[in-house]
Amino acid sequence: MEKLLRVLGRWGLSVVRTMGRMIIFLAESLYLIFSPPFKFNLLLRQIRFFGTKSLVVILLTGAFTGMVLAIQLFYTLRKFGSDALLGPAVALSLIRELGPVLSALMVTGRAGSSLTAEIGIMRISEQIDVLTTMALNPLRYLSVPNIVAGIIVFPLLAAIYDVIGIYGGYVVGVKLLGLSSGTYFSQMENFLDMSDIRMGIYKSVSFGIIVSWVSCYKGYHTDETGYGAEGVSKATTEAVVMSSVLILVWDYFLGSVLL
């Protein structure tokens, strides 16, 4: 019994300790965002890394998400005779929910994992120690550019996802299912509001912070998850799982608070 309690206690303590470390990591990174010198070159590099390189994935998944949504919603809405509302239904689900969440999940899989691996390798090959011994703060080079890039890139990716998805829905709804193209768009304008778009942006920005934060943290502390190459692979998996779970939990939380 005592042993069991001990195990439980140790586990609890380690969870609390990790959470504390993660929060300190984020806090220090956020502080460094506002203290010069700023690394614009690294920021551009990470914008390219998160954004430009994710474009193809986002275009593909966005288009198909919109098309699937249009088919599914069309049959549901037709049962109530309100297929005219297909446009707003597709646009609302994309802008408020699916755009930010799915694009964030796609980027987590594509960029978050390789970011963790890259930083993890820098850790095990002592490149991070090089920065430390040069009296430079590694976070300024590793986490700050990524967090800023995440804040900038995620909302833009979500917006691209939304637009492509809406046009994907248009192709299915109007070209395949025979809705008039006027209804699809004009109804959308009537039902959508700036507050919906703002909500999507808030979500994306927070997902950007979550993904870059978790990925950087996991890479930076690779030596905590395991040794050498195995540690990096474990850290990568953990980063993807943790980011994805946090995205969905935070999405629910924001959704219920902002509604």
Partner: peptide, 27 residues
Amino acid sequence: DVELAAGFFLLIGILALAFISIKLGKL
């Protein structure tokens, strides 16, 4: 060319955001 690649992405992203904000959000 990092600058070109990042700029390309930012342009597309901002256009998309502007499209949904102005056309649909009636900003």
